[in-house]
Design a protein around this nucleic acid. Structure first.
Lengths: 160, 160
DNA sequence: TATTGTTATACTCTATAACTATA
DNA sequence: TATAGTTATAGAGTATAACAATA
C-alpha cells in the first residue's frame, strides 16, 4: 500500500525498431534449467506427434515399456519406479485396459495386488510405438552427432 | 473382444529375489527424451524449493526476468517469447500484481495494450529470486564441472 | 496394524473458443 | 476487419486425504 509499490511507466513501448524481446538476451538464456524445460517441451511435442495419433501419451508409453520388461509388475512398483503417484497410476491403467493393451491380473497369493501384463495386442502395438518414439527422438536430436548424443545422455543422467 | 486381447499370467511376481524393477534396465534408460524429462523435473523441484517459499513459481519468475529486461513489454509479447498462451499470461500477471511485484500500465497511444513494469518491490524481490535460482541451479548441477555445464547448455540449446 | 489399490478432491498447467474494447 | 486482452471451459498432470479389501 505504500508508494514504493507504484512505478509509473518511464517510457512507452521501448522496442519500437529495436529487436523484438527475446529470452536469449536475458538471464533465462543462460540458465540450464530454462534450456532443460524448453528442450523437454520440444521433445514432448515430437513424441506426441509420433504416438498421439494412436491415442497414447508419453506416460502411458512408459508404463507399456515397463510392463513388457517386467511382466507381472505391480501397480505400486510401477508408481514407484516411474515416479508417478498411485492415484494417477489407476487412471493410466484404466486407459491402457480400455485400449485393450494391458491387463490387471489379481495375484492369487496376495489378493490385494495386481500384476500388470501386456495383451497380445499390447505387445504388437508397443513394437510400433517404440519405432515411432525412436523416430521422434532422431528427429528431435537431428542436429547432434551420435557422439554428442551420447555426451548429452550421460550429462543428463548425472542430474538425477 | 477377440481372444488375442487376453494374455493369462504366465507366472506370478517374477522378481522375487530379483533386483527391483528399474527404468535403467529398459528402453527408457536409453532415451534422451526420458532423461530430459527426469532432469527437468529434478530441476523444477530444486527451483521450487528455492523460490516457492516466496510464493513464486518458475513461470512467474520468467515473467519478472523479462519485465526487468524489457520494461513496458506487452502481454502478447510476453506470451509469444515465453511460449505461454495469452489466457495463461492473464493469470500469471494477476498473480504478480497481487504480490505487488508487477504492474499493467495502459498504453496511451494504443489503449488496447498494456505495458508490464516491475514495481520497486518487484525489482528488489527479483534480485533475491535470481540469487536463489542461481543457487538452485548450482545445487542441481553440482556434479558437473563448469566445462561440462557449458557443454550441456550448448547441446540443449541446439534442441529448440 | 499395515499395505494395495481406489475414490474423491483440488490445484496447476495447457489449450481452445468466444467475448470486449479498442483500432 | 483485425488485434490485445479477457473470460469461460475443459482436459491432463500432480498431490493429498480418506476409504475398502486384504494381509
Amino acid at each position: 500500500m505504500t508508494s514504493d509499490q507504484v512505478r509509473p511507466a518511464p517510457r512507452e513501448p521501448q522496442h519500437a525498431d529495436d529487436s523484438p524481446p527475446s529470452v536469449e538476451q536475458t538471464l533465462l538464456g543462460q540458465l540450464v534449467g530454462y534450456a532443460l524445460r524448453r528442450a523437454q517441451l520440444a521433445n514432448f511435442r515430437q513424441v506426441n506427434a509420433a504416438i498421439g495419433e494412436l491415442g497414447i501419451r508419453p506416460a502411458q508409453f512408459s508404463v507399456l515399456v515397463m510392463a513388457e520388461a517386467y511382466p507381472g509388475i505391480t501397480q505400486s512398483e510401477l508408481a514407484q519406479c516411474l515416479n508417478v503417484d498411485p492415484p494417477r497410476m489407476v487412471n493410466l491403467l484404466h486407459n491402457l485396459e480400455e485400449h485393450g493393451l494391458a491387463l490387471r491380473v489379481r495375484n492369487k497369493v496376495d489378493r490385494r495386488s495386481h500384476g500388470i501384463f501386456l495383451t497380445k495386442r499390447g505387445e504388437a502395438e508397443l513394437q510400433s510405438l517404440k519405432a515411432r518414439v525412436h523416430e521422434a527422438e532422431d528427429t528431435h536430436l537431428g542436429e547432434l552427432s551420435s557422439q554428442e548424443r551420447d555426451t548429452l545422455l550421460q550429462l543428463l543422467q548425472r542430474l538425477f
